[in-house]
């Protein structure tokens, strides 16, 4: 287990929060935005034979959710290492 300074940990936490904020914004836009609030307006466009708002609500948002989690896991692994707080060396 590495010992890390308080300052370093605070900076790590800020980096985490900043990544979270970005990804949660995308999460909100595709779910509550494209699939609910803007859905009626998006329906005028068409994608793979679907009305676009309907597609987001019943297909698209789910694909984006999956991608968001993997992006978070991947980016966080990099941030963890950058700040020396990664769990790579922890016993499994």
């Amino acid at each position: 287990m590495k010992t890390t300074s308080t300052e370093n940990n605070k900076a790590y936490w800020r980096a985490n929060i900043s990544l979270l904020t970005k990804l949660l914004t995308i999460w909100f836009i595709v779910s509550f935005g494209c699939s609910i609030i803007l859905a009626d307006w998006l329906d005028q466009f068409s994608l793979f034979g679907f009305k676009l708002g309907f597609w987001f609500a019943q297909q698209g948002a789910i694909y984006v959710f999956v991608a968001l989690i993997f992006i978070y896991a991947w980016r966080m692994k990099i941030i963890d290492r950058q700040f020396g707080v990664s769990d790579d060396e922890d016993e499994a």
């Binding site: 999460w27 609910i36 948002a61 789910i62 959710f65 968001l68 989690i69 896991a73």
Partner: peptide, 14 residues
Amino acid sequence: LLGWTGGYVLLAFL
């Protein structure tokens, strides 16, 4: 569909 999948994003992030 949205509710029961979108929650996993919150779970993984928060």
